[in-house]
């Protein structure tokens, strides 16, 4: 767990209100670089809201979300950046981004945070390969000189497009979808669609990958394959992963760090083992009222 020594994302005092409803209440946590950080909690705990705030789909009511590229010191620079009206800062060794100040598409394009959705959002009428090409829109747009160069057929664009196809092929092989590259995305079975969405997010070359329930609806074999894929993404590519998941076998097996939410408030934060034995977590999941009752329940289930 590298949340302390090598953080990539630092969320501070994040609050999101929808009218009178407080979906996320003063949440602070740190995700470490190269870690798989899991965000868990009962239904309606505000996990997806946190994701939507991080990826810019919601503007948080209050709070600060600092993301860094490279080795810039978050603590040293974040206050300076906050005092300016800007959303990012380039310093020695890297850049710092304040995600709450950026619109959704820039969070992906500039801050390099990619995400998937709880209900899969593929371009179903486009082929698998096309889905991955759309994900590489921004570099391809530059290579095509914002369409003009591509329109008159400059060779630079063709070369860059071939590179993009190679990138797509790489991720298709990784996700075992290479044989279906030319099929429409909407024709794939559910498990393949889940993997394709992850592959598509990875094609944007993210530093932080946010996965909203990637194992939902997968069978145990597919779920094990997903674990291996996520592990490899972290190890081989240095991409950090932030994950919402209900499947505890996935969470406990692959995450380095677990943050538990209940009613929008953080109730536990630590390694999987620490969280597993946290009485508040057990209470939240089992629905107990207070500590005494938790102990009773623990005794009953033999913990």
């Amino acid at each position: 767990m590298r949340a302390k020594s090598d953080p990539i994302l630092k969320v501070e005092n994040l609050t999101m209100r929808f009218g009178g409803l407080v979906a996320v209440n003063d949440l602070s946590f740190v995700a470490g670089r190269g870690d798989i950080t899991a965000l868990i909690g009962p239904n309606g705990a505000g996990k997806t809201t946190v994701f939507n705030c991080i990826t810019g789909f919601y503007k948080p009511t209050t709070g600060r979300m600092a993301l860094r590229h490279g080795n810039i010191d978050i603590e040293a620079h974040v206050e300076t950046l906050t005092d300016t009206p800007r959303d990012s800062l380039k310093g020695e060794g890297g850049s710092l981004f304040l995600l709450e100040r950026m619109p959704d598409f820039e969070v992906s394009a500039r801050a390099k945070v990619a995400r998937t959705f709880q209900n899969i959002r593929l371009f179903s009428g486009m082929t698998v390969l096309e889905n991955l090409m759309v994900a590489q829109h921004n570099p391809l747009m530059v290579a095509s000189n914002w369409t003009l160069g591509g329109l008159i057929g400059l060779p630079g664009f063709k070369k860059r497009e071939n590179e993009a196809i190679e990138t797509a092929k790489y991720w298709l092989e990784k996700t075992k979808l290479i044989d279906r590259a030319d099929d429409p995305a909407g024709d794939l079975p559910y498990g393949d669609q889940r993997r394709l969405e992850i592959a598509r997010a990875l094609c944007t070359d993210p530093v932080l990958l946010c996965l909203d329930e990637p194992a939902a609806g997968l069978n145990p074999k597919e779920s094990a394959e997903l674990n291996a894929l996520l592990r490899s993404v972290c190890k081989d590519h240095g991409t950090s992963v932030l994950l919402i998941e209900h499947d505890m076998s996935v969470v406990m097996e692959i995450s380095d760090h677990v943050v538990v939410l209940d009613y929008g408030t953080k109730i536990s934060d630590g390694t999987p083992d620490e969280v597993k034995s946290d009485p508040r977590v057990i209470a939240a999941y089992l629905g107990a009222e207070d500590e005494a009752e938790v102990e009773k329940i623990e005794a009953e289930v033999g913990l």
Partner: peptide, 22 residues
């Protein structure tokens, strides 16, 4: 070209487009 693919992607799913930095 990328812009044309982005148009078609927009027709398919606008939110996914934004999540991909378009």
């Amino acid at each position: 070209l990328p812009v044309g693919r982005a148009w078609e992607a927009l027709r398919e799913d606008e939110i996914a487009c934004r999540s991909l930095g378009i």
